[in-house]
């Protein structure tokens, strides 16, 4: 069997005095979707950055496709995994298409200019997020949700084999939340892309992830298939708030609501 897309072994991640995980073993295989859940400030983003090879763990290793991240150069790393950052900040004006084209950077050599093929890939990525008509709009004139979708389009244009998504649903309204999760679901099914995503909605995690990683704080974590790993007691502990499971006849997944 080939190496998993992402493998963490004995991973200990700390930021300042906060221990995020200690002794985390994790594998994400091709076409697999993992959701990371946890309270605000528990270190979900830092863990995601560590898995992306952008933050040094205190202990343990992260391997991408069988190679330790430290051994991969920036370009090879960028062709393998893509990170959707939590915030999209723009200092300079640029069009939506130019912003999506930035994702092609790791596929171009030093003196290459973006060609017709890159533009086609970027336009397809924009179309997949319903942004085709906005291609020539300045990013400064987009709404928060539109800007978030442009960020996702840039990630698609990067064509990574592993997508690390930091709150991919931020600023998105309901229909776009579902559309984005369906899109990554298709990528996982059809192109065997691995997906790791930080989510806030337990019920969307139930529907759109195969497994969950729960961060309880102080380095305590738990992982497992979604259906088994999530119940009222565990979620109450995870969020520090009582939760109730609702019976949902004719619906594939249970629904959890905060009391």
């Amino acid at each position: 069997m080939s190496a998993p897309l992402l493998a963490a072994r004995g991973l200990a991640v700390r930021i300042g005095r906060l221990t995020i995980v200690d002794g985390l073993d994790l594998a994400v295989h091709r076409g697999e979707r993992l959701a990371i859940l946890g309270r605000n400030g528990v270190g979900k983003s830092t863990l995601l950055h560590t898995l992306a090879g952008l933050h040094k763990p205190v202990d343990g290793t992260v391997e991408l496709d069988g190679t330790p991240v430290e051994a991969l150069g920036g370009r090879a790393l960028a062709q393998l995994r893509g990170l959707l950052a939590q915030h999209q900040t723009d200092a300079f004006p640029a069009t939506v298409l130019e912003t999506a084209l930035v994702g092609r950077h790791p596929h171009l050599s030093r003196w290459d200019w973006e060609g017709a093929r890159d533009e086609r890939i970027a336009r397809e990525a924009l179309a997949a997020l319903g942004l085709a008509e906005l291609a020539d709009r300045d990013i400064g004139r987009l709404s928060g949700g539109e800007r978030q979708r442009v960020g996702i389009a840039a990630l698609l244009a990067q064509q990574p084999r592993l997508c690390l998504l930091d709150e991919p649903l931020a600023h998105l309204d309901l229909n776009h939340q579902i559309a984005v999760l369906e899109l990554f679901g298709r990528l996982a099914r059809e192109q065997h892309v691995g997906i790791v995503m930080v989510l806030h909605d337990v019920n969307l995690a139930l529907r759109y992830a195969d497994r969950v990683l729960l961060l309880f704080g102080d380095g305590v974590h738990a992982a497992g298939p979604v259906a088994e790993a999530l119940d009222e007691a565990i979620l109450a502990r995870l969020y520090g708030h009582p939760m109730r499971r609702l019976a949902t006849a004719g619906f594939a997944h249970p629904i959890f609501v905060a009391e």
Binding site: L54, G74, G82, T89, A91, T99, G103, H105, Q158
Partner: peptide
């Protein structure tokens, strides 16, 4: 120019 995290993500 697109930001440090974006640049690091893209291998810069």
């Amino acid at each position: 120019a697109r930001g440090e995290i974006t640049a690091m993500n893209l291998g810069v």
